[in-house]
Computed example of a mutant assay.
Amino acid sequence: MNIKQYLDSTYLKTAAQAGLSVDENILVTKGFIQEAIEERFKLIMIRPDMVCLAKKMITEANSTLQIGTVIDFPQGESSLEEKLAEAIQAIQDGADDLDFVCNYEAFKNGNVDLVKEEILTCTQLGLANKKVVKWIIEIAALNDKQIIQLSSLIKNVIVSNFEQELFPKVFVKSSTGFYKTENNLPNGATIPAITMMLENASPLPVKAAGGVRTYEEAVAMVQLGVKRIGTSGAKMIANGQKSNNEY
Rank of each mutant, 00 (worst) to 15 (best):
66 Q>I: 06
87 A>M: 12
142 L>M: 08
36 A>K: 04
152 S>P: 02
124 Q>R: 14
97 D>K: 13
44 I>H: 07
22 V>I: 14
8 D>L: 10
52 C>Q: 15
201 A>D: 04
105 E>M: 13
76 G>V: 07
125 L>G: 04
27 L>G: 06
238 A>N: 05
30 K>L: 12
156 N>T: 04
179 Y>F: 15
120 L>T: 10
147 I>P: 00
225 G>T: 07
35 E>P: 00
196 M>N: 14
129 N>S: 11
223 Q>I: 05
86 E>G: 08
198 L>R: 09
128 A>I: 08
220 A>D: 11
167 F>Q: 02
171 F>L: 14
215 Y>D: 02
129 N>P: 01
102 C>Q: 10
152 S>H: 14
182 E>D: 11
147 I>A: 04
38 E>G: 02
29 T>C: 10
95 A>V: 06
58 I>T: 02
87 A>K: 06
235 K>A: 13
71 I>D: 02
210 G>K: 02
65 L>C: 01
46 I>W: 00
110 G>W: 13
172 V>I: 11
208 A>F: 07
72 D>S: 12
94 G>P: 00
206 V>A: 03
100 F>K: 01
235 K>D: 04
167 F>R: 08
125 L>I: 10
101 V>R: 02
175 S>Q: 06
77 E>Y: 13
10 T>I: 05
51 V>D: 00
246 E>W: 14
183 N>I: 10
178 F>E: 09
20 L>A: 10
130 K>C: 10
195 T>V: 05
143 N>P: 02
245 N>G: 11
10 T>R: 08
82 E>G: 09
26 I>S: 07
168 P>D: 11
95 A>N: 05
125 L>V: 06
12 L>H: 05
129 N>W: 10
13 K>R: 14
235 K>P: 00
104 Y>Q: 13
128 A>P: 00
167 F>D: 03
225 G>Y: 09
59 T>G: 01
130 K>E: 15
12 L>S: 03
165 E>Y: 15
119 I>F: 05
181 T>N: 04
59 T>N: 12
186 P>K: 08
14 T>G: 07
86 E>S: 13
5 Q>F: 09
96 D>L: 01
37 I>M: 04
94 G>Y: 04
43 L>P: 00
173 K>V: 04
171 F>M: 05
207 K>V: 05
84 L>M: 13
129 N>C: 07
151 S>Y: 07
154 I>F: 00
35 E>I: 08
122 C>G: 01
241 Q>I: 08
135 W>Q: 12
17 Q>F: 09
133 V>K: 03
230 G>M: 03
